[in-house]
Simulated assay, not measured.
Amino acid sequence: MIEIPRQKPKFRFAPSPNGPLHLGHALSAILNCEMAEKAGGDFLLRIEDIDQTRCTPDFEKDIYTDLSWLGLRWQEPVRRQSEHFPAYQEALQILIERGLVYPAFLTRGEVKARVAALEANGAPWPLDPDGTPLYPPDDRERSDDERRRLLASGVKHAWRLDMEKALAAIVEPLHWQESGDGERGAISADPATWGDVVLSRSDAPSSYHLSVVVDDAAQGITHVVRGLDLFHATSIHRLLQTLLGLPEPLYHHHRLLLGSDGKKLSKSMGDTGIAEWRRQGWSPAELRRRIGL
């Protein structure tokens, strides 16, 4: 009997260099590293720097410093998203050729105005799991001739997934295997709740949803360990993986660390970074105890 070699487990921590890492990042990074060691696998680091306006080399350098201080080691080379834009465009082109995406021309202001107009009449606008209004149907319902005319004019546009067509292209129900701190087992995916998600913008060659599935496949990631705030986004990722013929990792969504306001820690809210705790004299062991490890 021929023995088929088992794929070596691969875990990854994928921060964005757009601000200091905080305690929530430390929890995720440590969990990924320790789970990789326990599984006899590899711990990889990915720098998600698609947003070239907010991501900086200094923040990226700080990520390496913080993770090294925590005692974490990762495989080289580090994957940097800014070096793989063609891979995301290739994936997007596959979806374009299959007719599963469409160019979206509405500005944020136009979307906001449509939402406000509807709600002014007492009708609630549908929201995605993150509480963001779903994209209006205007662009999805444009004729091919009108789309070609707008594209030829050079007007700025994004590319959005046509959720209805994408789901129609799926043969079997979507699910994923979950082992995290919330629901466990086989989880039914429900990507329709996200509406027509954006996959690429005029100022960014790829969205988080598209780049993350392409990156995970390119790096051979077998286990995705990340915060519970991304639990529902897994529905979109499973849909894109299936449409693009990409492998399905196992998922583990861990608990979130909350600030004094009861909300999850956030760079945008200026929550205290790992470097600041280090400057205050904390040791890596003290930090681990602080985050419950």
Rank of each mutant, 00 (worst) to 15 (best):
L167D: 00
H209N: 14
S206A: 11
V171Y: 10
E3A: 15
Q7M: 13
P136D: 05
R238Y: 06
R142L: 10
L240G: 00
Q7D: 12
A204H: 10
A39R: 00
L250H: 11
F59E: 04
L27R: 05
G245S: 10
P20R: 00
V198H: 03
G220P: 00
M1C: 15
L118V: 13
D58F: 15
S283G: 10
P124M: 10
H209A: 11
K267M: 08
L228V: 15
D216Y: 00
W176Q: 04
D128N: 05
V212N: 00
D203N: 12
R184K: 15
P20N: 07
W69H: 05
I50E: 01
L134S: 01
I221T: 03
P17D: 05
E60A: 09
A192R: 15
H209Q: 14
W159S: 02
P129W: 10
N121Q: 15
F11S: 02
A87I: 07
D229V: 05
R12D: 00
E146N: 12
D162F: 06
A39I: 04
E90C: 11
G19I: 01
I63L: 03
I96Y: 06
A166V: 08
D181L: 01
E76S: 13
H157E: 03
S68E: 15
S153M: 14
H232E: 15
G131H: 04
S143E: 10
D190W: 11
Y102A: 02
A169M: 11
K156C: 07
I291Q: 01
D162E: 11
S235W: 03
S153Q: 13
S211H: 04
F85L: 10
A285F: 13
P86V: 09
V198G: 07
L287K: 02
E3H: 15
Q81W: 05
P5F: 08
A204V: 12
Y88M: 04
S283T: 15
L293E: 08
A87E: 11
I47C: 06
A113F: 14
V78N: 01
S16V: 04
Y102P: 00
I2C: 09
A158T: 05
W176S: 05
W277D: 01
H232V: 13
C55Y: 01
E286M: 13
P173E: 08
R279K: 14
T53G: 12
F13H: 01
Q280V: 07
D144F: 12
F85C: 03
Q177G: 12
S28Q: 04
G154V: 09
E3W: 14
H254A: 03
G270Q: 09
K267P: 05
G109Q: 12
P77M: 08
R98H: 11
F11M: 11
H25N: 06
R140V: 09
P17W: 02
P247N: 04
H157M: 06
A14K: 00
P9M: 04
E48V: 08
P124T: 10
